[in-house]
Nucleic acid binder design. Sequence first.
DNA 1: GCAAGGTC
Length: 861
Amino acid sequence: MKTVLMVAEKPSLAQSIAKILSRGSMSSRKGLNGTCSVYEYPGTFAGQPVRFKMTSVCGHVMTLDFLGKYNKWDKVDPAELFSQAPTEKKEANPKLNMVKFLQVEGRGCDCIVLWLDCDKEGENICFEVLDAVLPVMNQAHGGEQTVFRARFSSITDTDICAAMARLGEPDHNEALSVDARQELDLRIGCAFTRFQTKYFQGKYGNLDSSLISFGPCQTPTLGFCVERHDKIQSFKPETYWVLQAKVDVDKDRSLLLDWDRVRVFDREIAQMFLNMTKLEKEAQVEATSRKEKAKQRPLALNTVEMLRVASSALGMGPQHAMQTAERLYTQGYISYPRTETTHYPESFDLKGPLRQQANHPYWADTVKRLLAAGINRPRKGHDAGDHPPITPMKAATEAELGGEAWRLYEYITRHFIATVSHDCKYLQSSVSFRIGPERFTCTGKTVISPGFTEIMPWQSVPLEESLPTCQKGDTLAVAEVKLLEKQTSPPDYLTEAELITLMEKHGIGTDASIPVHINNICQRNYVVVESGRRLKPTNLGIVLVHGYYKIDAELVLPTIRSAVEKQLNLIAQGRADFRQVLGHTLDVFKRKFHYFVDSIAGMDELMEVSFSPLAATGKPLSRCGKCHRFMKYIQAKPSRLHCSHCDETYTLPQNGTIKLYKELRCPLDDFELVLWSSGSRGKSYPLCPYCSNHPPFRDMKKGTGCNECTHPSCQHSLSMLGIGQCVGCESGVLVLDPTSGPKWRVACNRCHVLAHCFENAHRVRVSAETCASCEAALLDVDFNKAKSPLPGDGTQHTGCIFCDPIFQELVELKHAASCHPMHRGPGRRQGRGRGRGRRPAGKPGPRRPKDKMSALAAYFV
DNA sequence: GCAAGGTC
């Protein structure tokens, strides 16, 4: 029997599609990467009985990068990145082992059906999958078709079955357009980023960003924020005047009227209008009107709208909102949260999810009434053909979800209920008055039926005092007519929600990448998020954008993306050649790049105003080994030491503090050592600024300290202070921290493993002898007489930290504080699988403690 | 160390 392999874009879709096609009867198992599942079921394909095997990838299988040697910033001129530097495809996520996985599953299959998302990226992934899997599949005998593409516009029974019945072929041109996009983004982005970063980092000491990045999406995103900043800066308030009239409705009640001219900007004219009206005693009713109006129920929820509301109403940043939504999705509370679609498919079961909310403490009444009276048909939205709108999948309570997740869930659910509710109906009434020659109006709204605003109370029509009932020809007494002097006010900084709207409008990024771009400009310190989630550009952000405007405005205009996209679409439609478009566009940007490099002084002039040159920044710290003058420590990111005499800069490890290390010097280059440490309970080690930037030995990597230096006799080196192989990672060595007494510490020079030992010992030294059973270096410890843990009056003991029974009692292993989730930065991290059980068994390394290792490993989580 | 695009 033949086997048909089918591949979807993500695990969740593989499951839904398999469920539909197998009518619910399929077997399932995890794939070798632990992330993708494989669903199998029997069926018929092209009239033959076959075995179907449905699985998925996780987005792109491959990613584009330069060949390794072109990633050395010091050795490659960024201009080379436009053409000379070759690129290669690498596995996008090596941990997922996607190519291997596809090959294991694809081996021996006869046909393949590609169920990737029906957009250009999906088409591109089709070919990534084919590249991996075709070589291991069975060859077709008579040249019949073995590669099929399923095109579907929603994940519904009818659509999926229809797609299966009308299989086509993958579209190579669409895939090529993505290849071109990837190459352009990579070459252009990296060239500009490297040049800018090196240029400005080499000149200024307080830029406060370790990367001065450029990209066709992030730069226009920043541009929007700075554009608003410029509007605020150049805003000149203008004075204007408003005529305000008050009429008496009855004895106790008066009514404020709006002037039909709204406002005038000339004082004398305003005065003239006041003079013409202020002596009038009566206001005459000229007309009245009453109109029934409706406020429309919302469209079904898509990602971008959810992010906007999350930011503006819930105060949650887009990145955070997406993470929260993803968690709600994987826990089964909401449907797939990444979709552009605002239209429910015809077959969508609206009542099912609604019924689940019928007993919810917050909205049971509304839901029950809707179910009893019949739901309203949702508005017709946009169908992007990706996933149904975001809807709740099961009821949840605040206690169950807690905090942020609950607030987002609550919003999604209220929004969903609103989409099947009725429009809000209200009566808008207005009365027009004449006072002298001038006209005034008064309007009011009264709710007829609240409709969806009952479940979205923040949208409700505000309660107003009702208008007096009057008719044309009636007169009311004028209580007062006065002139108000006011000033126009500047706009405020751009809110995140407004920025998302602008990005969407100009096609900057996608629903999935918009949060990433916004996050980028925050992390690079180009903008800061202020109260109300408004984005205020920093000096750095402003200078960059103003600099681009000065040199080549196209670099920052939102049109840069759409212009390139237009070219790419020609490739996708088969109307232009991939090589030609790529070559031409790269050529245009190469010219722009050279012009930018030649004109960089224009941006530099702006930099000079806001930032200080390297030589004028930082505090003197340690001595240079070449000129023996003090170098200055520049704390701002990226922290480094600068010798203004030699005009050399030495980068330091980031995320830690640096101090002078007892004026000790490196025996190799005479530079004064510094001590790097990460917080009070973290680890610390000495570091030679020169060696760290120019490693003296082949096995020492750049950016490391003396704890990785293999100098055979220097008292600070790994050779002298190393004890034995780390118990938490493959390649690290536990090294004594000679500065840590009296709370002595031993730390891994690679991972976060840290051991506290021998508290109150007054001296700890690494001995030249090694342990007979595990080959670790012995430690020579002098204890304090009063607090010695040794039997009798002994104060001195030599032994193995892993094997010696006395020492074992005195060693407590744990990760360094910086490894704790509390101290970690944002971002996904898989916290499982460290330590015990991760090391391949039976692979002894040098100086490895034998079975004692596992006992020690049990100490840490 | 860099882009933007998928997704976990």
